[in-house]
């Protein structure tokens, strides 16, 4: 198998160039998908027979919850790549993705609370999903805090990688134990999670929103990574000429 692409991916200059080409596409895709999904979901999708219009918050809640979980897995994968193949870009990706994941978790929690008010009658219930999401937020905080606490750049990345991998191994255990805990303590409450199958008009905009969120995440991540690469490689000549071109373009 030809691995040159993999090693090329490790080169900051190559990454900067290729990501510069992808970025506008991702950005536009995110914008179009999210606006289409929002208008479709909020204005045109049918009402839920049980929850009325309040269900429409899933068009924000579900994509952000999806993203929150997959970003953590991505952290662990990036960490593994960084630890095993010593790829610096994976380190950058890990540390730049963590805050985005934490924000997504926050959005999922907030929208969950907003959804909970009309559904359960209170802003917060110790529902298995919400609780798992809260724990996920704490896991993100751990990675971010560790990354900030260790001053040495490379050690910080490696330590975060180890923590993310330990976390990702634990996530299924945490998830199942929380679900178990939940069934023990709240046997027969109304559950939103067990709703009937959604009609197509409802889940299609949701799918569009999920795709839009992923594109948005990818675009923001690439932007953050590009900035970090410029910072790290600030001594390289290509970065100097790049920055010069950028600042002159502004003037």
């Amino acid at each position: 198998m030809n691995w040159t692409w993999f090693h090329k991916l490790g080169s900051p200059k190559w990454f900067y160039e290729i990501s510069g080409r992808w970025l506008p596409w991702l950005g536009w895709a995110a914008l179009v998908l999210i606006s289409v999904g929002l208008v479709w979901g909020l204005a045109f999708a049918p009402e839920d027979y049980q929850q009325g219009n309040s269900f429409r918050i899933i068009y924000i809640h579900v994509p952000s919850a999806f993203l929150a979980q997959s970003v953590y897995v991505m952290l662990a994968v990036a960490g593994l790549v960084g630890l095993v193949w010593k790829m610096k870009l994976a380190d950058v990706a890990l540390q730049q993705a963590a805050p985005i994941g934490a924000w997504m978790t926050c959005i999922a929690l907030l929208t969950g609370a907003v959804w909970g008010k009309p559904t359960w009658g209170s802003w917060w219930v110790w529902d298995a999903r919400l609780t798992s999401m809260l724990i996920l937020l704490f896991l993100y905080f751990g990675v971010i805090a560790l990354g900030h606490a260790i001053t040495n750049r490379d050690s910080a990345a490696k330590a975060c990688a180890v923590l993310a991998i330990v976390g990702v191994v634990n996530i299924p255990i945490i998830k199942y134990s929380v679900e178990w805990w939940n069934t023990l303590h709240q046997p027969a409450t109304f559950k939103v999670t067990e709703k009937p199958a959604m009609p197509v008009e409802m889940w299609l905009p949701l799918l569009v929103m999920v795709l839009g969120f992923y594109c948005f995440f990818a675009a923001v991540l690439l932007m953050r990574m590009r900035l970090e690469v410029l910072r790290r490689e600030s001594r390289a000549s290509w970065v100097r000429s790049e920055v010069r071109a950028l600042t002159e373009g502004e003037r």
Binding site: I135, F138, L139, G142, A145, G167, I173, I174, W180
Partner: peptide, 12 residues
């Protein structure tokens, strides 16, 4: 901060 979330399954 790092470890308490990981303790949850044992606690439960």
């Amino acid at each position: 901060l790092l470890i308490l979330p990981l303790y949850i399954p044992v606690l439960i």
